[in-house]
Simulated scan of single mutants.
Amino acid sequence: MSPQAAVRVLFLSMGNAARSIMAECLLRRLGHGRFITFSAGVQPRGEVHPLALKVLRERFRLDPGGARSKSWEEFRGEHFDLVITVCDKARETWAVWPGRPRMAHWDEPDPVAFEGSEAARELLFLQVARELSVRLDLLCALPLEKLMRL
């Protein structure tokens, strides 16, 4: 891979309704064109959770336009340089991605599954997005040639 080539990254979760969608949108902005981002679910919910979209819009000033919940099957045969699972269940389900990309695992709590007040739920969505943002900042700080040698 040449240093100028963009790294193709897939974020994989179970439902592709919050964590993987937020990571996809955040890296698209934080990566400044160095990454081509995608997200998918092992068992997609079929819709992006409204609080995930709200946090991206209001707290991160991102337009998540076009974000949609989709199955990993949509990407069968696609090449990825890096696949990042964002929940233990997704990692357990897909220990090896076709094409043998580099794999990373960032277990994050599922804000969609959390039961509580609307304010508490939004706070958890924000907390998860902030944690993902910190991890993505660190990923972006790596020189691409070192990233691809990991």
Rank of each mutant, 00 (worst) to 15 (best):
R29T: 09
A141F: 05
P50D: 11
G66N: 03
S13E: 03
K89I: 14
S133P: 00
L142T: 06
A5G: 08
G116W: 06
A141S: 14
A52D: 05
F60V: 03
S117C: 04
A113N: 06
V134G: 06
P111W: 00
L51W: 03
K146I: 10
E115A: 13
V42Q: 07
G99C: 12
S20W: 04
V86A: 03
S117P: 05
Q127T: 15
R29A: 10
F75R: 04
P143E: 13
H49T: 04
L144V: 15
L138F: 07
M1V: 12
V112Q: 00
W106N: 05
A40S: 10
L62C: 02
L150Q: 13
N16W: 05
G46R: 01
M22V: 08
F11M: 05
L62E: 04
D81P: 08
P143G: 11
R91K: 15
A6D: 04
A52M: 03
L139E: 00
A113V: 07
E78W: 14
V42I: 15
G46T: 10
G15D: 06
S20Q: 02
R19E: 04
A23F: 05
M148S: 07
P64W: 03
C25Y: 00
V96E: 15
E58A: 14
D137S: 10
V128C: 02
P50Q: 11
G15P: 00
T37M: 09
V55I: 14
R19Q: 08
V9L: 09
